[in-house]
Design a protein around this nucleic acid. Sequence first.
DNA 1: AGAACGTATGAAGATGTCTTCATGAATACC
DNA 2: GGTATTCATGAAGACATCTTCATACGTTCT
Lengths: 122, 122
Amino acid sequence: MVMGHGVGGRDRPGGRLDAEAAAHVATTLQALATPSRLLILTELRQGPRPVTELAEAVGMEQSAVSHQLRLLRNLGLVTGTRAGRSIVYSLYDNHVAQLLDEAIYHSEHLRLGLADRPDAVG
Amino acid sequence: MVMGHGVGGRDRPGGRLDAEAAAHVATTLQALATPSRLLILTELRQGPRPVTELAEAVGMEQSAVSHQLRLLRNLGLVTGTRAGRSIVYSLYDNHVAQLLDEAIYHSEHLRLGLADRPDAVG
DNA sequence: AGAACGTATGAAGATGTCTTCATGAATACC
DNA sequence: GGTATTCATGAAGACATCTTCATACGTTCT
């Protein structure tokens, strides 16, 4: 059960953004705009994971993972709780999971044009 | 009516990503991970706009807007068609609009922790 | 207390990104 | 054809980002 916030419609689909709001959103999205973090987050999407396990799962060094986790932590996207000597990380809440899912979904359906699209510009 | 692609559920909410897929998604999200581009896109969310109008609406120089538009174009997020001397840009399709909406929605509901969240780590 | 394990952190270097400046190309108007 | 308008583009500099290396911190076990 995913438990969305409604039926699938947001209150106000497409309002303008002021500079501050834009900065806020940009910061949040930047957290998802890196392969390493995306791998970490999708791994966490499967369930809570200690750092070492994460590192192995995504094929990164422990240090690099820790650095990215700190960033994600500071943004409130993940939380870590100690369990023995390990620290187990999880996605912070359902908004994160959904944002992840939706971002992946739309990205996969966008098929990057990357210079092979016949644009009218020229 | 927003006209989603289904009912609000994605096929497979939360699969793992391989390195390639992660890179793809990251690239797409990076396009939304900047205040300037976010402003441009949300302005386009309101409807098609010529470059100069865009520039004025978001308070950027024409050159800067053009550079960002090229990036968004290359990623297939927007298209531009000539109309007289102007080139009118629009969001490429509904996926872009939705991704935008959802990204903004979730971001606004995430309330960046930014170092004031009592994390268990320490 | 000492050793082993798991994680965090700071510094530093390589890269990437964004904006500005100057200029070029296409269209419209006179 | 010449000029004004609208947009694109390349170069360059300021700045941010990510990874690695070295090391420190906290916990567990003996």
